[in-house]
């Protein structure tokens, strides 16, 4: 299994992602932002951080980095791409995923633990989870307020592209449990094919019991299981139009 972690200038979760992925025994490499080719990789991770300082809009400059041509090509060819936090913002900016990020509704950086409900367990990144499973992991962002217009949201929901939603202890999405004001409490979405996942929570920080939790391993483990051909995802992504969970 070959995994690449893209390093933009200003990425700061690159090493964290590297170590988390390495703990699965995967062959992981850093990919410098000036490279262009992603040949031979099975999974590409866009890590968190402040690419180019994010002085403009988070991810707005990183989308123009040379490697992003490669990422778009790789994704369009069906390769697995995982964008975490700043990586999610970059995926939105480059148009691989729909919608945009706004500043948190309480306009401050927020680092905290959140709960996510698995809304669609038929994606390459959630195939080992059961629908409705609640995962705990941290967030750390100032721009995580997911926004899309109503038509896009309806479409995302209808096609099962909403993979994770912020929920409370009871697994219910409430305004209090929504840490940033995201539309529909959205924490993570995929492309229609399901091969590109963007999510705000830092799953790489939830891969070790010593650091407070291992729920992030569900996502990585799912991706590796999918890549090794161990899961039949069923009709959802192949049909591009599946049931909601």
């Amino acid at each position: 299994m070959r995994v690449g972690v893209v390093v933009f200038p200003g990425s700061n979760c690159d090493a964290d992602c590297y170590r988390a992925i390495e703990s699965f025994g995967a062959d992981v490499k850093y990919i410098w932002y000036q490279d262009r080719s992603l040949d031979g990789y099975d999974l590409v991770v866009l890590p968190g951080g402040f690419s180019y300082g994010d002085y403009l809009r988070a991810g707005a400059i990183a989308r123009f980095a040379p490697i992003m041509d490669g990422v778009v090509e790789f994704a369009e060819a069906g390769g697995l791409v995982l964008g975490i936090c700043n990586g999610f913002q970059i995926l939105l900016e480059c148009g691989l995923l729909p919608g945009a990020m706004l500043p948190n509704v309480v306009p401050r950086f927020r680092c905290d633990g959140v709960r996510l409900r698995v809304e669609n367990a038929h994606t390459p990144f959630t195939c080992l989870c059961h629908p409705g499973q609640v995962l705990s992991m941290p967030i750390a962002h100032a721009w995580g307020n997911y926004y899309a217009d109503e038509a896009t949201l309806v479409e995302l929901e209808r096609r099962g592209q909403v993979v994770f939603r912020y929920v409370n202890e009871e697994g219910v999405p409430t305004p209090e449990a929504n840490p940033n004001g995201s539309c529909h409490s959205i924490a993570g979405i995929t492309t229609r094919r399901g091969n590109v996942l963007g999510m705000m929570p830092h799953l790489e920080r939830a891969c070790e019991a010593l650091l407070g939790g291992t729920d992030g391993r569900w996502v990585f483990a799912s991706a590796f299981e999918f890549l090794s051909g161990g899961v039949e995802l069923g009709r959802l992504h192949l049909a591009g139009d599946g049931p909601r969970h």
Binding site: R110, C111, L211
Partner: peptide, 25 residues
């Protein structure tokens, strides 16, 4: 205060702020 600080980046923070004396690996 500390919820505005990223206190986990680097994945070495063992005891988070507010939970006791801060411990990093």
């Amino acid at each position: 205060v500390y919820s505005q600080y990223d206190h986990q980046v680097g994945t070495n923070t063992v005891v988070l702020p507010g939970r006791g004396t801060s411990v990093v690996r």
